[in-house]
Amino acid sequence: MERERNLRILVAKPGLDGHDRGARVIARAFRDAGFEVIYTGCHQTPEQIVSTAIQEDVDMIGLSILSGAHTYSFPRILELLKENSAEDITVIGGGIFPLEDIPKLKAMGIKEIFEPGAKLQEITAWVGENVKPREGIGA
């Protein structure tokens, strides 16, 4: 009998800026692509994001960013994942980034960055191809 795993994704919005329209849109696109999306709203600290990712056992964290909050939060999230032996969780970012930051973020371990022009289809297709549900534990 088939036992196909569902991809589980955390969509979070670190930083202090107020609205989460972008995050909601991408959450909906992921749902429509057949993924299970844990959605936690705005104002998430890196600590909250990583703790949620671990409790929810997600395969990927999608971070939505508006205004420069990535310089602190992205490295901190990667660091916390490592501290919790959870660096197998893929992290991607979407939003507005200064051009020169993108290679730095990727070098750091952010798997992909999507800028505002990116099509939703492009993002969901990337996830479908690059993120795989993890193996079962035990036995």
């Binding site: 057949g34 299970e36 999306v37 844990i38």
Partner: peptide
């Protein structure tokens, strides 16, 4: 779609 948005958190 078989997908879901889990928003209770």
């Amino acid at each position: 779609t078989g997908g879901a948005i889990l928003g209770d958190r």
